[in-house]
Each structure stands twice: as structure tokens, then as C-alpha cells.
Design a binder for these strands. Structure first.
Lengths: 233, 233, 233, 233
DNA sequence: TATGAATGAGAATTCATTCAT
DNA sequence: TATGAATGAATTCTCATTCAT
């Protein structure tokens, strides 16, 4: 899993940075703890993404992380809390990526198209995010509701999307009366369903939905659907 | 234990009675068998829908069905096969409902709108279908691929949708070049994502997405999106 | 442990009896279940008596019973419920033995002396009863309070003791105003403390309290104390 | 983590300060050590008294003491040794209290009554002592036997009690032939059993044995029983 | 066809204890 | 002296599945 290695790398870099800037000896100890926590989190993310909450095994997470099983409980109390932590971390990551889009700097229609493309690509590159969400919803989003770190979950994109829609409306480009929440949900939906259910869909339609061609066609279709909706006519 | 002996006695009597009143023993038994199978299937559907494949418990399915656990294995070999059977039955049901729509009798745009509304309402009334699909996809649709009863899974709707789109194009009402599979996936996606992930979304947006008003707004939005896309301008 | 073998024997006899009186085949199945339950109960009694509730190990109970660990949970849900069942069974046994004393047929002072002797001998022969009670009390008698089978716990001896004290008072032999509960508690206390804490006491006093001579002296002392209290002067 | 570094700094400062203000470093440290040891001992006493040896948790003892778990091992090697230390300390305390009674200064019958009352009150005010003894006895008093500090355990009261009994006999007040060990055990027994098993007894008799009235009645009863025994007639 | 009893492999979680600083 | 991190061996409990009737 490439994203996992990337995360690992980032951690290593971050640690190295900390070492070089702070001369204090005591950092070494602390660093290990933070690092262990992060390693467990990554291992758990992989496991939960692969097998769901019910199918995930603490033993396997311990193996993946090359750390002691006991340590998982030391840092994360129990399986449910670990899942919650994983979920929060996944949300944090996507929010972090969203921030880098700088949609406010784009023309309204370009901004919408960029958002559709970003969503598609993010889900494509982070399949674990989809599985995680599915698991969370199977459990009635109990873990999200219990999350005290709600800040990480709440997308600032809705507000931004509202501004873009308003800008487009004022310039006469977009139709009026569009609810940014509905639009955001629809944009996510079009990518999510296709990717999350692609194995079922591929089996049922008897055609591979993940070939480069199929994927590119899907992206075009989605842009047409969404832009066809927001543009004046 | 006396009650146990008494029960035995009752069984003997019942058997004797059945033998004397029903002309063919095998018929009586066969009928019960079908019934037991069906009861188990329903109980399993509920269980799998509530807890996913990994979280479902054979014990609970036995309890739900008020039948013996051993009988589940008698009819369905193992948990995975049972899940597969449940999945097939769920697909059969939705196909059955789709057939009753008679879309071919409707005007193109009315047909599309009806399909959107039907999809929305079916998912709304059959939340277990969504959870089931999620579980199936978590397991890479292994159960669907292994299904010998693929006929039940394959929707005849794609073909029908193609005809409707063609009719609309010929009448000048619809734009051309629409892939019925893409459209079908999008129609399903818009309802599916909203309903399947509603608890997460409600938590994140801090607004209840399942109030009557919210649901009616979602349906309007989806119709606008889809019809905005298929209609000429 | 002799009492354990005796219990086993009784079970075997009971089972044999049931087999001989009821010709029904179905009994065989039921009998096995009852027998397994009884065997587990005996094994658990030994384990809890030896190590207390906290120190007892389900694994060891399984070994002792030569039955599957899973079966313990099948019949007794969890460790606490098993402990409760053991406790109830221990109380049932002592109540059963008490009934055989027929104190009502004895002269008042003979009845009291018999009760003191019985208590002493029962505790002596059933050391597990003492340990069990200690464990129960460590947990604030939670298991007793939760017991639905309270009937088994409540001693009919208090009422009987009241009658004996009244008879003795009327005959002029006994002093008046004796609370049967206080007396019962004191009779139990004198034996219980000596036997339950005998290892501590032996260590502290540097003398073996369990030699035949020491035991006989203790019994004499207790009779003197109790009779010295109830008799008129 | 910055706070960690800050804490480190504080530690360094504190150490430096102590070094400069306290003439001897070792004294300052020793004093802290004694204090830590004592704190742990108290925390352990509470824990063992609440849950027994088997149910006690080192983690909880660390929490209670607000000290590090590692320190417990530093001072007390392992759980068993800690329990032994707790036991010794509990015995030391009761011996200390007994010494303050000055029974030798009292009239024989007053001395006996005082001893009964003291025993009752001490157990009442130190319920942890009872639980501790129960635990010790569950383990066959292994911890007492292994105690090298046997001096603390051995009650000087037996000798004193012998003298009192002799004084009473000579004055004609008491009967002769009373074994002070038997009497001491009986005095302890009457209070111990009532208090140690009070939850069971309350549940079984269906009456609260710990109301002020019930407690006062018990004390009267015990005095009557013991004095009725030692007094000439 | 139907069922209660039985089981082995494995799951989450706990616990006393040690390491490294 | 003091402490946070780490661990292996248990321990309770679960689960799909089979046995015997």
C-alpha cells in the first residue's frame, strides 16, 4: 500500500526534524511514544480498511505494526476507540488535502470542476477512506458522534462551496437556489458509489469499471452531470 | 425432566396425526422445509443488514428465526453461503420491483423521473439492501462473483434505459451520447450515498438529513440533477 | 476431596433412578445435559473454594470437569453467574443437612448442643463452604443478593431455634430474652472463625489448632460458652 | 512534545534547589523514599482490602498512590511481598492499639468487657483488617508464615489475658480452667463473623445488621455471652 | 426434518512485570 | 529516586461448526 509507506516516510521525516531542532535529551523518549502511536494508527487503518470493524483483528494490527499487541491497548484502550481514532485521522487527512485546493482563487465553474476531480482522485487514491466510511455507517456513525475531535470531521468546504455558488450566480454563470450541502453530497456520491461498489457493479454489468478508459469516462460523465446542473442552461 | 417427556409424547402424537390426515408424508415435510428455509433467509437478511457479514452471528440468526442453529447449516452449509443466498434474494426482490415500473409505457422524461423516484423510495424502504451491498463490496463482491444465480443479479433495466434514452434523443427532448450504465450508476449513487451514509453526514453537517422536509428536498435535488443532465438544455 | 466424590455418586444414582422409572428414550439426552451441568458445578465449587472468586480459573474448572471450557459458558453464561450457582448449591446443601437434624424432637439443651456440634462438624467437613462465604462477602454478597433462588439461602433454622428457646424458657431451663438470630450468628461465628482463620491463628499462636486434641477442646469450649449463655445460671 | 521538556526542566530545577537547600542530599531523598513507601503501603492496603489478593490490581495501587507503578516494584519486589508487607503493617497497627488499652490496670471483669468492646470497635473502624485476614487465610496464611517480622503478628494479649483470668479466678469472680487462647479466639470470632459476613447475613435474614440499634444489640449480646462464660455462675 | 449438546480455534482484553532513561 | 514505554503469558469469553439422536 503506497499511501501507507508515504505516511511512514512522513513520520520519519517529522521525527528527524524534531530531533534536529530540539537538543533536549528527553525528546527521545517522547518521540518513541508518538512514533509508536502513529505506527499503530497506520497499521490499524490498513486493517480496518481491509476487513471492516467487525472483521479486523487486533492480532493482525499488532503484526502489521511490528509492535506488541498490549501496546495497542496501552495507547488506544480498546478496539472501538482505536477505530474512532483511525476514523478521525482519516478525516483529518482529507480535510488537510481539501485545504490545499485553494478553490477560492478559481473561477466558479473551474472551482466546481476542480472539486469534482479532486473528490474522484482522492477516493481513487485512498480506497481505505471509503471502506472506513462504510464501516462507520454500518455502526450508525456511533464513532463519529462520539468523537470529541469533531473539528477534524467538519468540512470547511461547505462554506467555501456556498461562496463559489454565490459568485457564479452573481456573474450570471450559475443558476440560483442551489443548496451547497446537497451539491457537496451529490459530488461525493457520484464518485463514492462508483468506486466503493465497483466490484459489485463490474460483476453485474459484466464490464471492468476500473480500466483507465472506464475511469476517464466516469470522470467526464460526472463533470457533465454536475456542471450541467449548476450552469445556467 | 417430565416436560421433556411430555413434549416427546406430543411430537409422537403430532407425527401420527400428520401421517393419518395428510395423504403424502413427503408433501407435508417438503412444505415445512420450504417454509423453514424462507424463515431463515429473512432472519439472516435482518442480521446481515444490521451487523454486516463480519458482525453477524449465526446464533442470533437462529434466535430471530426461532429455529435451530443446526438447521441453518442443514440448509445453507456455512455462513458465507448463507450470505450469498441472502444477497441473491435481495437482488431478486429489487429486480422484481423494477419490473413492475413499466417504464417502457412512459414518456422518456417521465420514465427517467420515475426511475429516480423509484430508486430513492426503494432504498428508503429497504435500508437493509444498502448495508448488504456494502458488506458485499467490503469482500470485493466475492459472493456476487461466486453466485451461480447471476441471472437474478443482472438488471434488465440497463437495456430498457438505453431504449428510453434513444427514444428521448429521437424526439429531440434528450441530448445524445449518454451511456445508460453511467446514468444508471449515477441515479443509484445519488440516493445510495445520501441514505447509506446519512448518519455520518448528519453528524458532520450537524443537521438531520432524515426529516420529511430534508428527504423531499433531496428527491427534488436529485431529479433536477439527473433531468438537467439528460434534457437537451 | 471426599465430598466431591460423594456428590458425584449421588448424581450417578439419581440418574440411574430416572432411567429405571421413565422408559422414554428422550431422557437419555436430557440426562447428559443435567449431568454435565452438575459436573461443572462440582468442579467450579472445588476451584472457587481453593482460590476464591478472583483467583479461580475457568480453564482449571474445565480441566477438573474434563469437559470443554465452552460448555461452562453454554450452561452458566459467565464466571460470576457460575459463582452464584455454586453459592446457591452450597447453601442448598447445608440447608438439606440441617433439615435432617430434627432438633424439634430433642430437649432444649440437647437441641442447642446438637446444633453447636452440627455446625462445627459441617464446617469441618465442608471447608469449601467457608471459603465460598468469604469470597461472597468480599464482593459484598452481591451474588447472594442477585440470587433469585433466595429460598435456598434462607435458613429455616432461625424459626426452629426460636421455638427451642421458648420451650427452654417455659421449662425454666433457659434464660429469657434471647434473640435467635444473635444466638445463631454466635454459634456459627465460634466455629467459623476458628476454622476459617486457623492457618493465621496457628501461625500467630505457634500451636497447631487442627490436631484432634485441639479440635476436641475447641468443641468443648464452644459448648460451654453457648450453653453457659442460654442456661438459667 | 513541549510540555514534556518543560517538565524535565522543572525536575532539573527542583533537584538543583534541593541540592542547595538541604545539607545532605541523601537525607532529603531518604525522607521522600520513606514517604513514598508509606503512601504505597496505604494505597495497597485499600486495594487489597477492597478486592482481595487475587482481585487487587497493581495498576490501581499505582493510581491510588499517585505514584509510578515501577516504584511499587522498586520498593516491594512483587505483588505477594507487597501483600505481606500490608498484612504486617495491619497487624502492627492493631497490636499498637491493643497496647493502649492498659487492661492490666482494670478489674478482671471490666478488663474482659473492655477487650470485647475494643475488638468490636476496632473491627468496625477497620473493616479492611477483616478482608485482609480473609485473603491471608485463603492463601493458607502463607504470607504470615513467610513473614520474618513475626514479632509484629504475635499478640502479647494472650499472656495478659492469662493473667487477668488468673486474677479473676483468685478473687473468686471467674471460673477456673479457661484457656486464654480459646477465649481470645471466641471474643474475636463473635465480632469478626458478624462484621465480615454482614452482607450475606443481612441478605439471608432480610434485616439490616448495621443499623446503630442492631450494632448496639450485637455488642450487648457478645458481652453477655463472654461474661456469662467467664463469671463463676 | 429437527434439535440440544459439545467443541477447538481464536478473539478481545488483562496483568504482573521489566526496560531504558 | 522516579517514570513512561514496552512485553509475554494468561484469562475471560466468542464463534462457526459438528456430533448424536
Amino acid at each position: 500500500m503506497e499511501w501507507c509507506q508515504a505516511l511512514d516516510l512522513i513520520n520519519v521525516l517529522v521525527n528527524y526534524f524534531e530531533m534536529s531542532v530540539s537538543p533536549s535529551i528527553s525528546v527521545a523518549k517522547t518521540r518513541d511514544a508518538e512514533r509508536s502511536r502513529a505506527i499503530i494508527l497506520v497499521a490499524a487503518l490498513e486493517e480496518f480498511a481491509s476487513f471492516g470493524l467487525g472483521g479486523a483483528r487486533i492480532d493482525r494490527i499488532a503484526e502489521r505494526s511490528k509492535l506488541n499487541k498490549r501496546l495497542i491497548y496501552y495507547y488506544f484502550s480498546d478496539k472501538d476507540s482505536l477505530f474512532q481514532a483511525v476514523l478521525e485521522s482519516a478525516y483529518e487527512q482529507i480535510r488537510e488535502s481539501e485545504k490545499k485546493l485553494h478553490l477560492q482563487a478559481l473561477e466558479p465553474s473551474a472551482a466546481i470542476r476542480t472539486l469534482v476531480e479532486f473528490t474522484w482522485n482522492y477516493y481513487l487514491e485512498h480506497p481505505e477512506f471509503l471502506t472506513l466510511l462504510n464501516s462507520a455507517n454500518l455502526h450508525k456513525a456511533r464513532h463519529i458522534q462520539e468523537s470529541t475531535n469533531a473539528r477534524a470531521l467538519n468540512s470547511p468546504l461547505i462554506e467555501l462551496l456556498g461562496e463559489i455558488l454565490e459568485r457564479g450566480r452573481l456573474s450570471g454563470e450559475f443558476r440560483g437556489g442551489i443548496d451547497p450541502v446537497q451539491l457537496y453530497v451529490s459530488i461525493a456520491a457520484l464518485s463514492y458509489f462508483y468506486l466503493s461498489n465497483n466490484s459489485s457493479l463490474s460483476a453485474i454489468f459484466g464490464r471492468d469499471l476500473m480500466t483507465p478508459k472506464a475511469k476517464s469516462e466516469r470522470l467526464s460523465h460526472m463533470c457533465e452531470v454536475i456542471l450541467g446542473y449548476v450552469l445556467r442552461n
